[in-house]
């Protein structure tokens, strides 16, 4: 009962034959080897599995592949330009904003979506934008600071 699906992930078109009920999370991790996308509940209750779809934060655990045909999927692996990390990846590393690192891919992608629309967000705007991604390690403060530092370096 597999179906052919054409997905565009990190700028690359791929054709897959997958069960239509296999979530995008499972496809990214198990069929495309993109294990940078993590998962914490698979029910939309933690957002650890966050990706970007057309630049907007999405949950891969609730998305089904046929619905994302024709859309641009970005995962954490798609953030660096070649071996040059995205500014958010640098500031997250510098400020210790990744402790265990498990929510980090989703947190960084969500922050990127924010900075793409609001290059110099207030602390309150950052808190609102990241309110959907749970982190148990950091207390979020280093994460806020890392987003602010990346924004300030953007000029």
């Amino acid at each position: 009962m597999k179906v052919a699906v054409r997905l565009r992930v990190n700028g690359q078109d791929t054709e897959l034959l997958v069960p239509p009920y296999k979530t995008v999370l499972e496809i990214l991790r198990e069929d495309l080897g993109l294990t940078g996308t993590k998962h914490g509940c698979e029910l939309g209750e933690c957002s650890t599995c966050g990706i970007l779809v057309d630049g907007k934060p999405f949950l891969s655990c609730l998305a089904l592949p046929l619905d994302l045909e024709g859309h641009e999927i970005t995962t954490i692996e798609g953030l660096a330009e070649g071996s040059r990390p995205h500014p958010l990846q640098v500031t997250f590393a510098e400020l210790g904003a990744a402790q265990c690192g498990y929510c980090t891919p989703s947190m960084i992608l969500t922050a990127k979506a924010l900075l793409d629309t609001d290059p110099h967000p207030s602390r309150a705007a950052i808190q609102q934008a990241l309110a959907g991604v749970l982190c148990r390690c950091t207390g979020y403060l280093k994460i806020f600071e890392a987003v602010e530092l990346a924004a300030s370096r953007h000029g």
Binding site: R29, E30, G33, L34, T35, G36, T37, K38, H39, T75, I76, E77, L79, A80, P85, L88, Q89, V90, F92, A93, E94, G96, A98, C100, G101, Y102, T104, P105, I108
Partner: peptide, 23 residues
């Protein structure tokens, strides 16, 4: 000194390999 920890870049890039990432 407040320096990036050795595993930081692996974790921010999605390269860190957690147990469920192993295939």
């Amino acid at each position: 000194k407040s320096l990036p920890k050795p595993d930081a870049m692996g974790k921010v890039s999605g390269q860190a390999r957690f147990a469920d990432d192993l295939m």
